[in-house]
Amino acid sequence: MPRHSKHLKRLGHLGRLGRIRTTMLACLAALALGATTASAAGEAQDSQAAQPLAKPAFQMPFPCQTQWRLDTYDAGHDPALDIVVKGNTGSDGLPVQASAEGTVSATYVDEGSGNTIQIKHAGGWFTAYYHLKDAPDTYVKKGDKVLASTRIGRIGASGDGADWAHLHYEQRYLASGDFTDERHRKPVHFNGVEYTGVGNTWPSVTSANCSDSGAWKDCPAGSVCFYSGTDGTGSVCRTDEDDPNSACGLRKSFFNNGNVQEGYDHVQVTFKEGGSTCLHRGWDEGRGNFASGGRTIDSVRWRGECAA
């Protein structure tokens, strides 16, 4: 073969190699660009997922104007809080309220956290309440709507994680779903103030959970409660079953909202002085007001419908 033919053939071969190399470089560049774009999109998505929506106006989970000590303890505990009454003079049995309006998303018993409640609030925010004294569905049940000051339980020492009566409290964020765990914890805010940081103690914080601290909130779901005071306060008598020999004196009563059970969604109250009143299970209708006051209950009967 002539030399120039060999040269041309070699040039053609090199040209094909160049085109292949160029194509490979273009493909590699496209893959790199795609990876960069995907990475950027992933980072943007992760960043978006990591940025919680605006927090509800959480308040302390205790009645208005009561005072409390807050502790974060070590890095394994922060940003959760352990809370006891100011001076730690005895917190066992003190009432626990919801921190904001929401829906009870879980009530359960855990080996470590004991009697536990989670509440789902607006924008993917949750609150968690550990070591409650009573069974977690005593005052509220899963699916119940709660207000900022609805009573949900009492401080206790249930679970292996509680050596003394206190409330372990957390604020959490999860964009979707109804159940959270400790991976979703965020720094706690009460009344717009942040309480977080390893090893911190706030010896006296006053609760501003003051939207409605009526005594009727002490009445467990599914019970009818009778108060001696004209404003719904004072000594309370409660029952969750027929009580034909009740000796409660009353001025005002509240039948707290609970889950409707067929055949037991009304309570008929008869009085020793004569007459009767019907209470219906419900948020508004359930707050029966015996305005005349001073009457004594003769019997309490749970019914599907009250007698005519």
Rank of each mutant, 00 (worst) to 15 (best):
H184M: 09
Y130W: 13
D46K: 15
S158Y: 06
T201F: 07
S39F: 13
I20L: 15
L132C: 03
L33P: 03
F58L: 03
F226C: 01
A157W: 02
V269I: 15
C219N: 05
L25Q: 12
R154Q: 12
L17A: 14
W216S: 11
Q261K: 11
G87M: 08
G282A: 08
L279M: 11
V140C: 04
G143R: 07
Y169L: 03
V267R: 01
G294A: 08
Y108T: 14
S176K: 14
R3Y: 11
R151A: 04
D298C: 06
A29P: 04
H13L: 15
S91F: 01
G282E: 06
N256R: 09
D78N: 15
V224G: 02
L147H: 11
Y264V: 07
A41P: 04
S207C: 06
V104Y: 01
P244W: 09
N88L: 08
K217Y: 10
W125Q: 00
V96P: 00
Q171R: 05
Y169R: 04
S253P: 06
W283K: 09
A291D: 15
Q48W: 15
T23W: 15
R154V: 05
G304Q: 14
M1L: 13
D265C: 07
H77W: 09
G229K: 04
V205M: 01
E182F: 10
D284R: 09
S299F: 11
S91N: 03
L279Q: 03
D178F: 10
Y130C: 06
